[in-house]
Nucleic acid binder design. Structure first.
Lengths: 209, 209, 209, 209
DNA sequence: AATGAATGAGGCTTCATTCAT
DNA sequence: AATGAATGAAGCCTCATTCAT
């Protein structure tokens, strides 16, 4: 691998170097306000090079979204499938994994980006909806169902409760890539998530310790 | 009022007709992707007329945000000041008022817009933060404090709990102006808010009925 | 007319000022090699102004062709309809009118332009073919038929003879906008046309004087 | 020849494979609108390979023109030198040879190409003028002179008559590479040329049969 | 000799802004 | 107050050309 000619290695790495640079700038400025030239120079290439890998700015946007979070969704599905323990513990595991894989890096900007551009790119939005959102909701929803069936959780409206559970997590990510710059003291993410889960434990579970 | 000459009334109404048109389009497409010409034509005037009222596209953006939600914040502050009853009831009142004034109209798009553009317009973001977000948080935070003091609520981290309480409400608004178009069945907002409050009652209160 | 406000008069005149500038440059350099900026500055306006009148470079090209020669074709049809005299005299009249209206001005470049770009703009080529070429050929063809019927002309293959008659006239126009620059002594157009007609008189007519 | 190693043969053939591909595309789209990449891929090589044989797009254009028709001109000069018979018969021979060598293959596109690009490449135009056009005209001109001297032809203006004789032949070639696509029934070239010569026989000769 | 990744100048097009009417 | 024609800066994209392999 280290023996492969640099040019070749370069070429294979290019697309993700480019989507990575694009993601950072799209998240920061939005799609329309980001110049391709800035993306290129952040990736260390020239403007024209972009077009060797993506046929348009819009195609680059699609690639940014599509390559973004899919693996993490799959990983969480595997975690759920292999879980033994209480339903609430599973919720905690899923959140922890999500956070460890996304919370700390640039992918955390995707929800903000997707929210901001959904109406300008309906197909991409639909892709994201079908392949990320729907699957995450299904995961949480099944966990809730299971917990209700086992008597761990109270009687819940699955769909809506799922939405309400997910919302603060999304909002945290969005916040960190938007208004956070206005706050003097950043949101303490671990504490925020812990508080969210604490409220949920109280709110969801039939019996409290 | 009805007696005033229509021309005059028209003239005075112009700025808000323009910000209203601008708000709708900024929310839909984002700031950069919205053309002033489209704003003008939606408001029924020519492109040049915009410049009689706003000195630039950016100034129009600021006006859109600034005139947006301020009155509602003040109204909620008044509601809180005049409240007699349990703290949780106050939370419900505040939410209900918020929803009735914002949930149903174009102002509901402001959080999405602000989130999407915060980094491009830090001063506007700061204005919004100081004049809307901080005040709303203060309101909720004080309510929580009061509820803790009275023994109604458990022991809570005020700041973080406030964030977690507000997040699903913001997220609902944002969602309705972004990904909602991908869903076949829209989010049932009243049910969503009711579920949120039900979880909170369980989650916040010391004793359950 | 002279009382109309200059701005207004300007606006009405713009499209033809622009197509006129475009014609000159398209003929000189070809469509692809002509820069819109050069067209604009030749017409005394800025680059952006072009787009107030034509939605793209291609649309401008179409307009250049379409507004070009149509009136002259119609005039020649009228001349033919009102002609009384020998068929050969009619051919001379048609040629003389064509030359007086086109030979001396920029429209003379259209055949070269059309020939050069026909394959890049098949729809425009077809338009030109249907509305100019076909009608001119019909005019000449009918004149030949009439002359044959009256015994003035020999027995001729109408279609092909028509083509052969027209060809040197087209070629003269094309030449003047292409290779002519290489010649030290320009083609003497009147002499050329006169020679062409002299050969034709001999070639077409049954009896010579 | 057939024994030479294919690699070697390949190498030697490259330049003409490239000019051949270039000719076809230049004729179809014009110089500016033709991409070097398309030329390369039509010739079955990569873009970079072009630069091993031609130092620029313009150099390739020059080569296309220069290698184009020269041999045929020389052949016609030889035919004229060896001719014994009437002057009109010589004209027919020259035309027949020209047509057999050029009319059926890609070289037939050169007049269109040259006409379209003459003003963009004055040196190439001049080369073509000096080495092709002037020599062809000289050939025809001398034939006319000879025919006049022998009493076969009427009294003619040599220069202009030459131009008028050549024009329909050039125009036929040009037409086939431009507007021809608009016609449902192609021009019948042999008939066209035969008609041209028939008209000429009448037109040029002193006595008719 | 051949490749094809990379470059960057340059063109088409958009659109915020101005200004004469 | 209102218009809309005009501007020109700026962005997306193309493609001739270079060069490391």
């Amino acid at each position: 691998m280290s023996a492969s000619p640099p040019r070749k290695r370069r070429k294979e790495a290019r697309p993700s170097e480019l989507t990575s640079a694009a993601l950072a700038l799209f998240v920061e400025k939005g799609f329309a306000a980001t110049r391709l030239e800035d993306i290129a120079s952040r990736a260390g290439v020239s403007k024209g090079t972009l077009y060797l890998y993506f046929e348009s700015k819009e195609a680059l946007f699609k690639a940014v979204i599509q390559e973004g979070i899919l693996p993490v969704v799959a990983e969480n599905e595997a975690i759920a499938a292999g879980h033994a323990g209480s339903s609430f513990e599973l919720l905690e595991k899923l959140l922890a994994h999500w956070w460890s894989r996304i919370g700390q890096n640039d992918f955390s900007g995707i929800p903000k980006l997707m929210v901001a551009e959904a109406r300008n790119f309906p197909e991409v939005a639909r892709f994201y909806f079908e392949n990320v959102i729907r699957r995450v909701k299904a995961l949480v929803g099944k966990t809730l169902e299971h917990g209700m069936a086992s008597g761990e959780f109270r009687d819940l409206n699955i769909t809506t409760t799922t939405d309400v559970i997910i919302a603060p997590i999304l909002m945290l990510l969005i916040w960190r890539h938007s208004m956070a710059c206005c706050q003097n003291d950043e949101v303490d993410a671990p504490l925020y998530l812990q508080t969210h889960m604490a409220l949920l434990r109280q709110g969801l579970c039939r019996t409290q310790v």
